[in-house]
Write a protein that binds this DNA or RNA. Sequence first.
DNA 1: CGGGTGACTATAA
DNA 2: TTTATAGCCACCC
Length: 107
Amino acid sequence: MVQNPVYEMIWQVLAAIPPGKVATYGQVASLAGVSGSARLVGRCLSQLPADTRLPWFRVINASGKISFPVGSDGYKRQVKRLQDEGVAVLNGRISLTTFRWQPDGAC
DNA sequence: CGGGTGACTATAA
DNA sequence: TTTATAGCCACCC
């Protein structure tokens, strides 16, 4: 259950990220109306069920890297998902300038 | 109510 | 470039 509408907003923003693109925690937070609270996004993702349909793997940190410890289970899963969508992960880093999601603001 | 934590970010040195 | 620090907000004890 969710008590806070913020979480649902985050999920909505998350689902709006197109395939082949990525967004940072701060970006998602901003679009969800909680700008400055990137940690909330991280918390929200950490609570997502393993079988969720949401593209949680399209969310990375502002450094263009995956926020999981390198070599961890979640890390490998995220890299696999990203690569499967055509996102290049080189040296554990993602080119934000190339793959960053640029929302059209259509709402 | 207060203190600690976390899949974060921006700024300064 | 990397490290340190402060700010951020919900959740848990």
